[in-house]
Amino acid sequence: LLYPEHRWSEHLKEEQETKLRSGSLLSATHPKETLTPKAATISHPDRHTISRSVSESIESVTKFENFASSNDSDPAPSASDSHMLPVLALNEVFIGESLSSRVSYYELGINKGNTIKQKSSGFTVCTGTGSTSWYFNINKLTDQCVGELVNIIGSELKVDLPKTDPAMVSRICKRFNDQLLFSPDHPRMAYTVRDPVYNATFPPVAPRGFADSITVKSRCFDAHLVVDGGLSYIFNDGSEATLAI
């Protein structure tokens, strides 16, 4: 588990740019003073205050950019900065935002491959022992889903499938779900991306699979790395974890 010595949040610059845009918009749309009935009271912000606010925002963004560029040469956190957790996961490890309604943002690398940006409801990794629990319930199909798929397949292939036979649908469903389980002594980990978000920024990837090593770099706001549903470690923006079996 790697906690970098310096953690630069991309959100800080976005916040400054938002303030700058807001100040510029307010300055540009400031109305000219006009005569109004005495019964009406209209208050306008002071022009000098707006101008000063915009100048301060520009200066703040400039300082941030200069500060960030001056630290580009800082060495990346080395292996000596990382910490081996004092526990091993028997079943699974979960990584994601503490608030379940907030999307988790992170960078994912499988088997030392290129990292890809991901947004989802979290990320789980399990051993064969844990494949009967959370991993299984995230990925399993229901009879309803299988029945609807059989109906669609029959329509697409122009064949008459026994889609109304509940016993057949149940057998197909069980066959799929059973192959999700794997032996406790299996030499690899199984991973699952929960409810992935796909768009131009976050391209589609296989939502589940097996791996020898997994690297996750957090871009989250208030996230944790949870071992076997018990031990929890803070895992916010900039933190990096490497999982291996």
Rank of each mutant, 00 (worst) to 15 (best):
Q179T: 06
F176K: 06
G109P: 01
F176W: 12
V93E: 00
F67E: 06
T127M: 10
V103A: 13
A200Y: 06
H11S: 13
N71P: 01
S9Y: 03
T142R: 00
A190T: 02
E17A: 07
T62L: 03
R102H: 15
P86Y: 01
L181I: 15
M84T: 08
L181M: 13
E240A: 05
E240H: 05
Y105N: 15
S57N: 12
A79E: 12
S131I: 00
T201A: 14
L181N: 12
H11W: 11
T132G: 14
H186T: 03
P196V: 04
P45S: 13
L85C: 04
S53V: 01
N114T: 14
R219W: 04
K174S: 11
T18V: 09
K217W: 01
E97W: 09
G109T: 03
V61D: 09
T215V: 06
I50C: 03
N151R: 13
H11K: 08
I214V: 07
S22W: 08
I245H: 11
A39S: 12
T164Q: 14
H11Y: 07
D160E: 03
G154R: 02
K140A: 07
M84D: 05
S120W: 02
G113Q: 14
V193N: 07
I138F: 02
W134M: 05
D185R: 06
F202Y: 15
L20C: 08
R47N: 11
K140W: 02
D143F: 02
K13Y: 00
R175P: 03
T62C: 00
T142G: 04
K63G: 11
T192Y: 13
V54S: 01
A241P: 02
D212C: 04
S55N: 01
Q144F: 07
E92S: 02
R188A: 06
G96K: 09
L25W: 04
A28G: 02
E92N: 14
D160I: 03
R47T: 10
T242K: 15
S131H: 03
A68T: 12
G128L: 07
V227F: 15
E33M: 10
R194F: 07
G238W: 11
N139P: 00
T41I: 05
A223C: 14
K112I: 01
G109E: 07
Y233F: 15
G113V: 06
T129I: 02
L231N: 05
V197E: 15
S82G: 13
F67L: 04
S9M: 02
T34L: 14
T124S: 05
E14P: 10
G230L: 09
I245A: 09
R52T: 07
R208L: 01
D185H: 09
D178F: 13
T115N: 14
P86G: 02
E15I: 01
A40L: 11
G23Y: 04
M168N: 05
I234F: 11
I152V: 15
H83E: 12
N151Y: 05
A79R: 07
T132P: 08
P196F: 01
A190K: 08
F182H: 04
D74E: 12
G128S: 06
L20F: 08
C145M: 10
R102T: 13
F64Q: 06
M84R: 12
F210M: 13
E5Q: 03
M189A: 04
I58Y: 12
K32D: 13
